[in-house]
Design a protein around this nucleic acid. Structure first.
Lengths: 146, 146
DNA sequence: TCGGGATGCTCAGTATGCTGACTAATGTGG
DNA sequence: CCACATTAGTCAGCATACTGAGCATCCCGA
């Protein structure tokens, strides 16, 4: 009786494994150059163009520092432009380039395909349940923060 | 109609958010010094002492490089010892120190408490369902790798 | 026994992701 | 209108995490 715990009853451990499995499949089926968080950023800019980094960070649930790095990488690859807001010298206004928009179109198809494969072990009801339960736990934990 | 996607239907995005929420709560309720992956390593060494890094990496689902860094940090803090196996000069044999064992005992209690808070928004059935569904998806994706 | 393949580890490089400190710019109350 | 708080961004530092290359060691067959 060493008192070791079964990590498979620990949601944190399972969450990490789920993300790990996901990023593996992502690399194989979606893109090796563009990561899943990068896609999240591009997708947010499709939905809401011309926002600043702070707003963006709230949309994709990442902090300002991480967004800054991530956006810098996307800018370096010519997928978006970062311009100082003339009306507010603190803000960087972000706008996808044509290439960024093209990339998004391509990846939307692939991510849909990947998600089907990823969730293939579950039936339709289970899929919805999984997504709903994760969202509830994550939302609730975020409430705690506030 | 820019064609943006709802990220809340993407398991990868939700997995990241779940992990994010978890590590936030972990820092508040379990430990600021010892992270969740570090606890996973210590826990694995409680269960199976005297294993090498390769075996350990399989147990906690992390690759060799990550384990090496992680183990080095734990060793620096005096929580475990890393000794070259005299019978096989390639292996590092790992053993928790007394302090490492003490730390594990302390954190087991706290993680249990934290998991209850983390999963509080769900009822008992939903909790089991969530853990089971995540494990199924993660396991299946790992099979794909092999 | 010896030579090549397999194995365990390390190291460099890169990408997330966080905190906390700092800077610059804006907004506001007196 | 000016001092002060707030806000957006950057930067340093740290911890995960991966790939791919390289190194030392072991193992196994000829």
């Amino acid at each position: 009786m060493g008192g070791a715990v079964d990590l498979n009853t620990h949601p944190g451990h399972l969450a990490r494994r789920l993300q790990q499995a996901h990023s593996l499949l992502w690399g194989a089926m979606v893109s090796e150059e563009t990561t899943s968080p990068q896609f999240a950023v591009v997708n947010a800019l499709i939905e809401k163009p011309e926002i600043d980094q702070r707003t963006l960070s709230e949309h994709v649930h990442l902090d300002r520092s991480t967004i800054a790095d991530l956006v810098a990488r996307l800018a370096r690859r010519g997928l978006l432009e970062r311009v100082r807001d003339p009306n507010d010298g603190r803000r960087n206004v972000l706008r996808l380039t044509e290439e960024g928009i093209r990339l998004h179109r391509k990846l939307v198809t692939r991510t849909a395909r990947m998600n089907r494969v990823f969730l293939a072990p579950l039936d339709e009801t289970e899929r919805e349940t999984l997504l709903r339960l994760i969202a509830r736990v994550a939302d609730a934990a975020e409430e705690l923060r506030a």
